[in-house]
Amino acid sequence: MSKDFLTLGEVGWLENFINEYTPIDLTYWSNETFMEALPIVAQGIQITLLLTVTTFALSLVLGFFWLLLESTPFRFVNLIFYWIREFIRSTPPLIQIFFVYYGLPMLQFVDISFTPFMAGLIALGVHFSTYIAEVYRSGIESVPKGQTEASIALNMTKFDKWTKIILPQAIPPTIPMLGNYLIILFKEVPLAATIGVLGILQLARNFGSQNWSYLEPLTIAALLFLVMSYPTALLIRWLEDKIKRNNPSLKKARERVEV
């Protein structure tokens, strides 16, 4: 039985307890490897965060385009883009990443190839923009119809109606929703490890394959994600409660978009 499990000071009783009363087998675990892997895996934070932020920025922009493409005067065009968006939304992002990274450069009429980072950025950015579009839409729908009618009655131009009446009311309630998606995106970014982006997960797996012990580095990876996403989630829940208390009509709009 390995002796180095949590023997910080006098907690040998814990080891005895685990050995006697639980099926947990401590021979798989080593504290030394854990400490050794920690600084190496933590180096991936930078790339993971960078990919998260850039992907989020891309999806914020693209989400707006979906909204425009689905509200053209031609119903047929709207319907086509609606189904394209539905297609991207309900198929696995992992395969979309493979499609961009392994598939697109192989097409004869496209002469491009992507670095793993770029491929992850494009695939995840497009995938998430389909959710972001939904957030934008729900924000706009949460503005009561009377507001539009009033601005028409006041003879406002279309531009004024949007910039002065609708958007100022539609944007604040979407902020916590966008925050939620930022966290969800942060947790999807390790998918890019499968094509070799050297984020937290890929560094953990590399360490595992070099030292032939995967459990410790992967535990570190999981803990790093938890440590970063949980406080952010708490912050956003708090923000959400605060905004919800201020305008109760938002509850309905919110239900539709939760992933």
Binding site: A204, L215, L218, A221, A222, A233
Partner: peptide, 17 residues
């Protein structure tokens, strides 16, 4: 708080333990 892909790899090694 953690992502599915991390959990999947983690459980692969953690379940035996």
């Amino acid at each position: 708080g953690t992502s599915l892909i991390v959990q999947l790899f983690w459980l692969q090694y953690a379940i035996p333990m």
